[in-house]
């Protein structure tokens, strides 16, 4: 028993040493996190979304009619849906950091030139994002620096509408970035909770590559 405990403690100590050393030596800020994180409401479970994610986002759809048919469940959210039914029943002001919107409204905002923020990890952003979207991942060590750069960007005004999105209807990252935006004084924040999978499911344009590099493809080409 004593030997078992000593062996276990030795393994834990070695894990502590290696974990600390390896993490301190990481150079890529996208793969670093602070040792002590700051997470608001870490125990709060959001109510489940009533809007289901698309069954097969990458499934080829041959005609525009089929696109509309495939999108119908998303375009008509169920009654009494909570967080996801913002088009039909906008949540009361002050309920969350931003008003939640569905994919069709997000596309309208895109066509109106609204600024988008991609709250997913940078590696996912580079694989594909809404054209022109800025990348701000709350999970990466340089978030504060990037957030400050965004806030101080002369092209960004505090009253302009901003759409934040992330990975899926269950993803909370867009809400967490929206909270930061709200805390910084931004007043017109829209949270597109369905995120990129719903956007791709509708065959809306997608851009690839790092922030600022326009390597994307548009429309159906982009979705493929």
């Amino acid at each position: 028993m004593k030997r078992m405990i000593l062996e276990a403690l030795a393994l834990l100590a070695l894990a502590g040493l290696l974990g600390t050393g390896f993490h301190l030596l990481r150079r890529d800020p996208k793969l670093r996190i602070p040792f002590i994180g700051k997470y608001e409401r870490p125990f709060e479970v959001l109510p489940p979304s009533k809007v289901t994610p698309p069954k097969a986002p990458a499934q080829p759809v041959s005609s525009s009619k089929e696109v509309e048919a495939a999108a119908a469940p998303e375009a008509a959210p169920p009654q009494a849906s909570g967080a996801q039914s913002s088009q039909a029943q906008p949540p009361p002001a002050g309920e969350g950091p931003g008003r939640e919107i569905l994919v069709d409204q997000a596309f309208e905002e895109f066509q109106n030139g609204t600024l988008f923020i991609d709250a997913r990890r940078t590696k996912h952003y580079e694989e594909g994002h809404i054209p022109g979207a800025r990348s701000l991942s709350i999970w990466e060590a340089d978030f504060d620096e990037r957030f400050d750069n965004f806030r101080n960007d002369p092209g960004v005004a505090i009253e302009m509408p901003i759409v934040v999105y992330c990975m899926s209807v269950n993803c909370e990252d867009s809400h967490r970035v929206a909270e930061r935006l709200k805390g910084a004084g931004f007043q017109n924040i829209l949270v597109f909770r369905g995120g990129l999978p719903e956007w791709v499911g509708k065959k809306h344009p997608v851009e690839t590559g790092p922030e600022g590099a326009k390597k994307g493809a548009g429309g159906e080409e982009g979705a493929k």
């Binding site: 974990g19 600390t20 993490h23 996208k30 793969l31 670093r32 996190i33 602070p34 040792f35 002590i36 994180g37 700051k38 997470y39 608001e40 870490p42 125990f43 709060e44 479970v45 990890r121 991942s137 999970w139 990466e140 060590a141 990252d173």
Partner: peptide, 24 residues
Amino acid sequence: PPDFAHLIYNYKLTPGSLINLLAI
């Protein structure tokens, strides 16, 4: 580690200050 911290956060069982330590 950021992805793993994200997964731990999603469990909603860990105090905020421990999430990154566990992930590391």
